[in-house]
């Protein structure tokens, strides 16, 4: 079966701000209906990459293609941008905001009305559609912020940290909304430095650092290739154990942490060693590796550094 042509392709993108290299040869592909997560610390180049796709930042090198055609100059209509900030007119109502951004994106008449109804239903804001946005909660504003960027049915939506500052419930709601978009065939590029935003939602991840891709693939691929299948162990004891009781694990006061290559094989041995030293386990946690470990393994630093 021939490979499907990507709806968005970034090839060897380079962008410099003076001496700072924001994008250093970034390349990635995005398929229709795919949800791609761009993960990286602040300054990794995620926002620059998205603004370049939106045509708001000119590249110093490389190219961007939308549906096989290079994008240059004005922003293509197929792109929807959801800025990191809540980019809404706070003295206007949700309906007025949607209408304004809809018109600016070329919608009018019955089509605009139809899309307004869809957006208010999609965001769950129908009952408060005629209220000023300034009175909305953070989660409601975020939902409306996304709706204003997708109202004109773009084929690719760029979401720059779309859930910054919202509570977990509101975040779930937003991800459900985005899920609906991908089901309809819309491709999403979502940047974040919050692991919770990526794990379990995105189809594919691109880990970025210093303007480059350091790894990409599904979450499972990244974990397997980045840190293997080991588990992370945390033990809390009733008292401080003697030194060297469990080689290869780190002892810090009454706390023992470390990796277990094969938990089923290694854990009984660890517990037995602790028991034979006369200590009792008060708390035990065995956790599979996550993106945080992958990121540290790939870049040598924490995501929030």
């Amino acid at each position: 079966m021939p490979a499907q042509r990507p709806i968005l392709r970034i090839e060897d993108a380079v962008k410099r701000y003076g001496r700072v290299v924001a994008l250093d040869g970034l390349s990635l592909d995005l398929q229709a209906g795919e949800w791609l997560g761009l993960l990286g610390p602040n300054g990794a180049g995620k926002t620059t990459a998205m603004l370049a796709v939106a045509g708001l930042v000119s590249l110093d090198g490389g190219r961007i293609e939308l549906d096989g055609r290079p994008t240059q100059g004005p922003v293509p209509a197929d792109i929807g941008l959801v800025p990191q900030e809540v980019a809404l007119y706070h003295r206007l109502t949700a309906r007025e905001n949607l209408a304004a951004f809809g018109r600016l994106n070329g919608l009018s008449g019955a089509m605009l009305q139809e899309r307004l109804r869809w957006a208010l239903d999609w965001t769950g804001l129908e009952s408060r559609a005629d209220e000023r946005v300034g009175r909305y909660s953070g989660g409601m504003k975020r939902r409306l912020n996304i709706a204003c960027g997708v109202l004109h049915r773009p084929r690719v939506v760029l979401l720059d940290e779309p859930t910054v500052g919202v509570d977990p419930q509101a975040r779930e709601r937003i991800f459900d909304m985005l899920d609906e978009l991908t089901e309809e065939g819309t491709a999403l590029v979502q940047s974040t430095h919050e692991l919770g935003d990526i794990e379990g939602f995105c189809d594919r991840l691109v880990v970025m650092d210093h303007g480059r891709e350091v790894a990409s693939g599904t979450l499972e691929d990244l974990i397997r290739d980045g840190v293997g299948d080991h588990a992370h162990l945390t033990l809390e004891l009733d008292r401080e154990p003697p030194d060297g009781i469990v080689p290869d694990l780190e002892i810090l006061g009454r706390r023992i942490t470390g990796h277990l290559d094969e938990p089923a094989r290694d854990l009984p041995w660890v517990l037995e060693s602790i028991g034979s030293a006369g200590c009792r386990v008060v708390r035990l946690e065995v956790r599979p590796p996550g993106l945080a470990e992958v990121f540290v393994a790939l870049t040598g630093r924490e995501l929030r550094e």
Binding site: L51, A54, G55, L56, P74, V75, A77, I79, G80, L81, P83, Q84, E85, V86, A87, L88, Y89, F101, L104, N105, C148, G149
Partner: peptide
């Protein structure tokens, strides 16, 4: 410009 609306307007090809 401060709250990102300019980004959105420019992305909407307002110019």
């Amino acid at each position: 410009r401060e709250n990102g609306i300019l980004q959105r307007l420019l992305a909407a090809r307002v110019g």
